[in-house]
């Protein structure tokens, strides 16, 4: 489930966001408690709590005193907007920069995208395998 690429609490927050984006967690659904999360992923509960606190700060989750944490009604919309911005900033903009450097006209890129994938995409989808399929078994 976790790797060394970034702090674990951040990865917890990302995993929950992905569940909200995919629809696995809906609006006002209760999420696992920090203790359940800690036990399931074998991590310190303070680390799990940090991930949850970040999501509360960002408005993705809200707390109900004595009951637990729930998904904010507008969380999915909020995350979609955030991911959309990130997509342009992290995927499209660098691609355009690179295209400029090597002299590819933007029209050619647009044509290519509109024509659909030119070759079988099987190999390139390797990185898209959801992480949770290998969780919990270590």
């Amino acid at each position: 489930m976790f790797d060394d690429r970034s702090p674990i609490y951040y990865q917890i927050a990302e995993a929950i966001k992905n569940d909200i984006l995919s629809g696995a967690l809906g609006a006002d659904d209760q999420v696992m408690s920090t203790n359940q999360y800690a036990a399931f992923y074998r991590i310190n509960p303070a680390t799990a709590a940090k991930g949850f606190a970040q999501l509360v700060d960002e408005g993705v989750l809200y707390k109900r005193r004595g009951i637990g944490m729930f998904v904010s009604p507008d969380a999915r919309q909020r995350l979609l907007t955030e991911r959309r911005e990130r997509f342009f900033a992290e995927v499209v903009d660098p691609m355009v920069d690179e295209a400029r450097v090597i002299g590819i006209p933007l029209e050619e890129i647009v044509d290519r995208i509109q024509a659909g994938p030119q070759h079988n995409g099987e190999e390139t989808t390797g990185t898209q395998v959801p992480e949770d399929t290998r969780g919990g078994a270590q």
Partner: peptide
């Protein structure tokens, strides 16, 4: 060992 870690975590919580 993992049973120990799980138990430690559970009981600590």
């Amino acid at each position: 060992r993992y049973a120990f870690y799980d138990e430690l975590l559970r009981d600590y919580m």
